[in-house]
Design a protein around this nucleic acid. Structure first.
Length: 415
RNA sequence: GCCGGGAUAGGGUAGCUUGGUUAUCCUAGGGGACUGUGGAUCCCUUGACUCGGGUUCAAAUCUCGGUCCCGGCCCCA
């Protein structure tokens, strides 16, 4: 027997129906914010991802040479492809550009709960604008999406990477070693950060200032402790968020996020119920386009870990009931089978989801099957009723039956 | 990449410590009892020891390795 490759999954029809249902909620929400869907290739030139994330991503990339000796990688995320698309095809479109995407991504990592090698991301990018409203718009959409999915327990945190980067640069950390320091700060490993920073010539006083900054956590009032433009900027972002009804956000200047290209506001959402892999959403403002050969353009984007958020919803007890079909047609006797085929075809033509017995089952078994596929109605095609051009319409949940003319069936079922 | 726990019909399980008939039970699938009415009952039937090597007269059981899953670490764009 051949199993799925490590870290991949099969989605059976019930699961797939559920996933589509929630995907479409996300698509719908994006639509209400004026974002439009795009699709990019599942594989790209490996260089695209290395440019974005640095050569160290290579070890977690599904990368290979194709038959034309091209270095190819399965996409590990979709921001870089989206921005590549913008640079190649959309740079002259009126700004701002609002796009979103949903699709699978691939990372060569050890799978664990909420982490797969093939996983699904929903993301959006707002390109060409750099105002507080831009950031608020994006955060607000992310928040609306989590609400639309019905997740209850989650934490939303907004920070600003620019102020932290500036502060550590001013303190004497060289640009090429900033990532090292930020990584420790992200985990609040101050004791490990101290010797590293001391080695770079950062004074104790400057260090403690920086640590205090990353400990700036709480409501909007904590921004009073952040002097200058950044404090004002984030206050404006929060102001717009409040105006749009997003109130349950926390300021946390310790939100660091991994990559160099984030320039300003950054945010994350996590679901505490998930354990080690609890981050369900992450994003921020950045510039990437110039890396891919375009002009420098400010953007704000985010991505939702679709598998994780579904897992979190499941842990909260949210269940999705498969819809089933509208009608199941069965014939009472052999000589009615052609009539049954006509009936089911007429229902389908009327845009009703309808199935018909094709196994020659007896009525009892056919009804049992209709029940198991969650048919709302069984339509019993028998010789007696057919003399008057009728069939028996049986409501599968109540057991009520009535005689209905074949031509009246669609209206009766849809009504 | 590191540490630990696992894997028995489609799903859920018993058996493993102490090797020994035809591998347990529930559920599910197919057929029948029921000749024009489902979700009940009964009967028949389908279907599994993760894979490979080793020890042994004999391995689901002991042992080694691979694969996959789960918890955690690293990483997390």
């Amino acid at each position: 027997m051949i199993q799925c490759p490590r870290g991949t999954r099969d989605f059976l029809p019930d699961e797939m129906e559920k996933r589509r249902f929630y995907e479409n909620k996300l698509r719908h929400t994006a639509g209400t914010f004026g974002f439009r869907e795009i699709e990019t290739p599942i594989f790209e030139d490996a260089e695209l991802f290395i440019l974005r994330s640095g050569p160290n991503v290579l070890k977690e990339l599904y990368a290979f040479k194709d038959k034309g000796d091209r270095e190819i990688a399965l996409r590990p995320e979709m921001t870089a492809p989206a921005i590549r698309m913008f640079v190649n095809n959309m740079s002259n479109e009126p700004k701002p550009i609002k796009i979103f995407y949903f699709g699978q991504c691939f990372r060569y990592e050890r799978p664990q709960s909420g982490r797969y090698r093939e996983f699904f991301q929903f993301g959006a990018e707002l390109i060409g604008s750099a105002t507080p409203e831009t950031d608020a718009e994006v955060i607000s959409m992310a928040a609306s999406m989590i609400k639309a999915l019905g997740l209850k327990e989650y934490k939303f945190r907004i920070g600003h990477i620019g102020v932290l980067r500036q502060r550590i640069a001013d303190a004497g950390v060289p640009a090429d070693r900033a990532a090292e320091v930020l990584q420790k700060l992200d985990k609040k490993l101050y004791d490990e950060a101290r010797p590293i920073m001391a080695d770079m010539g950062v004074t104790d006083e400057a260090m403690e200032d920086i640590f205090a900054l990353t400990e700036t956590v709480g409501g909007v009032e904590v921004l009073d402790r952040v002097p200058g433009d950044v404090g004002d900027y984030l206050r404006q972002v929060v102001g717009f968020l409040n105006a749009m009804g997003v109130v349950d956000v926390e300021i946390d200047l310790g939100v660091v996020r991994g990559l160099d290209y984030y320039t300003g506001m950054v945010f994350e959402a996590e679901a505490p119920s998930l354990g080690a892999e609890k981050q369900i959403c992450g994003g921020g403002s950045y510039t990437l386009s110039e890396l891919f050969g375009g002009e420098k353009v400010f953007s704000t984007g985010f991505a939702i870990g679709f598998d994780r958020i579904l897992l979190a919803m499941e842990k909260e007890g949210q269940v999705y009931e498969p819809k089933g079909i509208d009608a199941y047609v069965l014939s009472v006797s052999e000589d009615m089978r052609l009539k049954a085929a006509e009936v089911v075809a007429s229902l389908r033509a009327a845009d009703i989801s309808a199935d018909v017995d094709i196994m020659g089952r007896k009525m009892a078994k056919a009804l049992k099957y209709a029940s198991s596929i969650k048919a709302r109605y069984a339509i019993i095609v028998g010789a007696k009723e057919m003399e008057d051009g009728c069939v028996t319409l049986r409501d599968m949940s109540t057991g009520d039956q009535e005689l209905v003319k074949v031509e009246d069936l669609p209206a009766r079922i849809l009504g």
